Simulated scan of single mutants.
Amino acid sequence: MQSAKLGMDGIILAGGRSSRMNGQTKALLPFGESAMLDRIISRMSLVCDSLVVVVATEEQYDAMSGRGVRTLIDRLPQQGPLAALHTALEQTEPGKLHWATACDMPFISETAAVWMKQKLERSGKMAIVPEIGGKLHPLHAIYRTECAVAAAEFLAEGRLGMMSLLDRIDFDIVKEKPFAEAGIDVRFAFNMNTPEQYEKALRMEARL
């Protein structure tokens, strides 16, 4: 799919264990006419200049590569999304903007991503993160490459959570009302960790 060349790259984190999904790999679950990962790649390719998928193991690499996008093996596998994000960011050029998502988010919104990117460009801050349902969603957010420095510091300290990164960088928050005023459906923040959530997502898709 041809990119719109909007000055933004995409990062898909797909290295989780899927431990609550009864052993099924979330990225490869069928969703509509394709696998979850292919669905996300298709949506992100609409607005990203390039995409990278970060996995944790050689087995995941074999299962998820060959989709026309770069695939990286996490340098700190199974240490959580912050480590995976750092693996991708540390290999990119300074000054780039990156839309980071997870492989279990079937309703990601390229419209929301572009809208947040534009706000981030105007603010000059390090990242912009949506707050939906009173909860921050750092895996449907936009980050500058320079966030890799703060991520590396926390990983060296053994602090592995995405919220640790947000503790150290200057970032903007976008709440539900501005998204609604812009006509953006906030279901983009929905993610699936369990079979029940997967079934709910399939029902949501059927109603769209």
Rank of each mutant, 00 (worst) to 15 (best):
166 L>C: 01
56 A>D: 12
178 P>C: 10
191 N>F: 15
191 N>E: 14
126 M>R: 06
22 N>Q: 12
151 A>T: 14
157 E>S: 12
140 H>M: 01
109 S>D: 09
42 S>I: 07
93 E>L: 14
12 I>G: 02
155 L>P: 02
180 A>C: 06
201 A>E: 04
164 S>I: 02
56 A>R: 01
5 K>T: 05
58 E>Q: 15
26 K>W: 01
147 C>E: 14
191 N>G: 02
42 S>Y: 14
25 T>S: 10
100 A>L: 00
183 G>Q: 10
134 G>Y: 04
148 A>E: 09
38 D>W: 11
105 M>V: 05
36 M>A: 07
137 H>S: 04
9 D>K: 15
111 T>G: 05
19 S>L: 09
185 D>M: 06
79 Q>R: 13
52 V>F: 01
115 W>N: 07
77 P>A: 07
189 A>W: 05
102 A>R: 01
151 A>M: 09
15 G>Q: 02
46 L>A: 08
5 K>E: 04
54 V>F: 00
89 L>F: 01
63 A>S: 12
127 A>I: 09
114 V>D: 00
44 M>A: 11
20 R>K: 09
20 R>L: 15
195 P>C: 05
148 A>R: 06
169 I>Y: 10
100 A>R: 00
167 D>K: 11
55 V>K: 00
78 Q>G: 08
154 F>Q: 00
198 Y>C: 10
77 P>Y: 02
35 A>I: 12
102 A>G: 10
16 G>K: 09
173 I>T: 08
181 E>H: 14
102 A>S: 12
197 Q>G: 08
132 I>R: 05
172 D>W: 00
129 V>Q: 00
207 R>W: 07
88 A>S: 10
141 A>I: 00
100 A>P: 00
12 I>R: 03
195 P>G: 09
200 K>V: 10
21 M>S: 06
188 F>M: 05
43 R>I: 04
29 L>C: 08
187 R>S: 08
9 D>S: 15
138 P>V: 13
48 C>L: 04
208 L>M: 12
129 V>T: 03
107 F>C: 07
149 V>A: 12
173 I>E: 02
195 P>H: 04
181 E>Y: 06
35 A>F: 10
169 I>S: 11
28 L>P: 15
208 L>D: 07
113 A>H: 08
117 K>M: 11
124 G>I: 06
41 I>L: 09
59 E>Q: 14
97 L>A: 13
57 T>K: 05
29 L>S: 07
198 Y>W: 07
208 L>W: 13
123 S>Q: 02
133 G>Y: 03
140 H>R: 01
201 A>V: 03
135 K>F: 02
187 R>W: 05
22 N>K: 13
98 H>N: 13
112 A>Y: 01
112 A>L: 04
17 R>H: 14
127 A>R: 08
198 Y>R: 15
173 I>P: 00
89 L>T: 00
197 Q>M: 13
9 D>W: 06
69 V>A: 06
201 A>F: 01
80 G>S: 04
159 R>G: 00
48 C>I: 03
16 G>W: 03
66 G>S: 02
115 W>S: 12
82 L>G: 02
